[in-house]
Design a protein around this nucleic acid. Structure first.
Lengths: 167, 167
DNA sequence: TTGTATTTTCAATAATTAATGAAAATAACG
DNA sequence: CGTTATTTTCATTAATTATTGAAAATACAA
């Protein structure tokens, strides 16, 4: 396979995977492009490579920066901005977990916690409380686990996972 | 808070969470409704509770069954079908991981593996191979880890997670 | 300043995805 | 069988989400 084809395949694959996980395709494609690019790229290059509009490019680059996956680079003597991505996929994964935890999981945990404190005066209400408590307990535990993992060093985590699951 | 309100809050919250993770809202809402329901429900009840059409209800119930999260129950003397959900959230999580691995991760791993074998005759191609190899290695490891966890018993997994991360 | 390159915003439009509802298919019953 | 309850399908419609592109805002240099 030629490089150009492989590159397209990767950008496409990364975009498809992302949509299945609730991330928009363009955002994932920009991320993919920057991950495999040796140099940082400016907006026009990204637009040209992915055949997208300026507005679209700008918005999704901003989002990637918000997610902590892409960074701005200022080249001396250059007026426009250049962008580059974190290329270590472990760090990418850690960052995604961290952000999703903060943005999506934390609010849900708060709601669940509230919902455990209703009257259980009917079979429906009793079952409800039982299920919600179970979800709340497990989710809180899983969230705390993720939190601990994020605090730990990457190597420590990797080492321990290997110990835990090694054959 | 009253039961009726708590119930609506939960169904709504579960639906919102799901959309952020690439699952459609109705599917998550049906799942939520069945999880908190003491009895199995028929299609008409689900339609009425969630205010959705028959077609929508039917399609999403089918999908939930495909995902292994909801099951059919036949009541003797009853012609129509009743549905109930797995209520143990650990089992739900395990099932979701299992299915996503099969449907989404496995195909991506196959593509990544292909992409590692291109000529590295330019700086771009060299960087590409480097990044793809890293992703492929880490993803394969994570996938294998998930596979091992799925094979293990739930209690075993829980116990070991506690040991690993307990303060 | 003033002009110019660059970035950002956002209303309009396009594309995608989900939901409806009625018709067709299926299954159960007498 | 024929009848009726129930489920499934799917073309149409609705809702949602993403993209465009041009105008406005901003940043920089002279």
């Amino acid at each position: 396979m030629e490089f150009a084809e492989a590159k397209d395949r990767f950008i496409q694959t990364w975009g498809t995977l992302a949509t299945q996980w609730g991330i928009n395709r363009t955002m994932a494609q920009i991320h993919a492009l920057l991950m495999i690019s040796p140099d940082s790229l400016d907006t026009d290059t990204i637009m040209a490579e992915l055949q997208i509009s300026r507005g679209n490019a700008n918005m999704n680059i901003r989002d990637l920066i918000d997610w902590g996956l892409v960074f701005k680079k200022l080249k001396s003597g250059e007026r426009r901005e250049f962008f580059y991505a974190e290329k270590d996929i472990w760090k990418v994964a850690r960052q995604v977990v961290k952000e999703r935890r903060r943005r999506e999981i934390a609010p849900v945990l708060a709601v669940l916690d509230e919902l455990t404190s209703i009257n259980t005066d009917s079979p429906e209400a009793a079952e409800f409380t039982k299920v919600i408590s179970n979800i709340s307990r497990v989710a809180t535990f899983a969230d705390a686990t993720a939190g601990a993992a994020l605090k730990a060093e990457e190597t420590w985590l990797l080492t321990n996972f290997v110990k835990l699951f090694a054959r």
